[in-house]
Amino acid sequence: MPVTEWFIIKSLTVPSSWVAVLLALILTGIVVWRVFGKETEDWYSDAAILFLLVWKLSVVVTDFDMILDSPLSILYFNGGETGLYLGVIAALGRLFWQLRRKGWPERELVAMLIAMVMVQSLYQLFMVLLNEAEMWQKILTVLVFVGLTMLTWQKAKLSSVWRIQLTILFLAGHLFVSTLQPRGFVQTPLFVTGLFVLCSVAIYVVTHKQQEQMGEKL
């Protein structure tokens, strides 16, 4: 969903996409805390805060000359799309490391998939609410992401095979929705979903190798 609305907060102009990201992260954190408990919510919060910090502070890398000329500009700008990708990669890397250290607990893997799907789905829903588009585009976007979220909640706990299938299905659903939007496949939210999928596939491969090794030892 393209950005058509901007919000003015004192001297800062904020695009609706920023608002959608923050609301999606906060609401997902509340749901993870209520459903999975504080310990699970802690790793989610760590990843979310790391993402926001890297995204915000990456402006030092992406616009170093501007920061040298006006150091206070770091308060008003972020690293843009490049910084966002760096933030997502940093957050997923930390999440991968935390789950690996814990031995890939089933409950945490379920929570991770649900959190990933919820963040992206809520972002899409808020973008629908905050921006202008054709009504049929809005309705289809809502139906696809709500449907994928509900299916993920129902099936994620069944098995690792179901989780990887849900991950691929979510990517397919996002690809379908992207065909309805002006920028098509060339859009940041879709690339973020792609990073989610890569992380999920990596976890699936690693956990299954461990299970096979344990089976051989037995």
Rank of each mutant, 00 (worst) to 15 (best):
V3T: 14
T4Y: 04
T4C: 11
E5N: 14
I8M: 13
P15V: 06
S16P: 02
W18G: 06
V19K: 00
L23R: 02
A24S: 14
L25Q: 07
T28A: 07
T28P: 00
V31S: 07
V32G: 00
V32D: 01
V32R: 01
W33G: 03
V35H: 14
F36Q: 04
G37I: 09
E39V: 15
T40W: 06
Y44F: 14
S45P: 02
I49C: 01
L50V: 13
L50H: 01
F51A: 01
L52I: 12
L52E: 03
L52S: 05
W55G: 01
W55C: 02
L57W: 10
V59M: 05
V61L: 13
T62M: 06
D63N: 12
D65K: 15
M66R: 10
I67W: 04
I67N: 05
P71I: 00
S73Q: 15
I74C: 05
I74D: 02
N78S: 15
G80H: 01
T82E: 09
G83Q: 00
L84H: 11
L86T: 00
G87M: 02
I89P: 01
W97I: 15
L99I: 14
L99N: 04
R101K: 14
R101C: 02
K102F: 01
P105A: 15
P105I: 09
E106I: 08
R107E: 10
L109F: 08
V110D: 06
M112L: 12
M112G: 06
I114V: 11
A115Q: 02
M116P: 00
M118W: 06
L122G: 01
L122M: 12
L122R: 00
Y123E: 06
L125D: 03
F126C: 07
M127G: 03
V128T: 08
L129M: 14
N131A: 08
A133D: 11
W136M: 09
Q137Y: 08
T141D: 08
V142W: 01
L143C: 07
F145K: 00
G147W: 05
T149D: 01
Q154A: 10
K155T: 09
L158C: 08
V161M: 15
V161E: 14
W162H: 12
R163A: 07
R163E: 04
I164V: 14
Q165H: 08
L166M: 10
L166F: 07
L171G: 04
L171F: 10
H174G: 11
V177W: 03
V177K: 07
V177A: 12
L180V: 07
Q181F: 11
R183V: 11
G184C: 07
F185L: 13
Q187P: 02
L190W: 02
V192T: 09
G194P: 00
L198V: 12
C199A: 15
S200Y: 04
A202S: 09
Y204S: 04
T207S: 13
E212T: 13
Q213L: 15
M214V: 13
G215C: 09
E216H: 11
K217V: 12
L218W: 14
L218P: 04
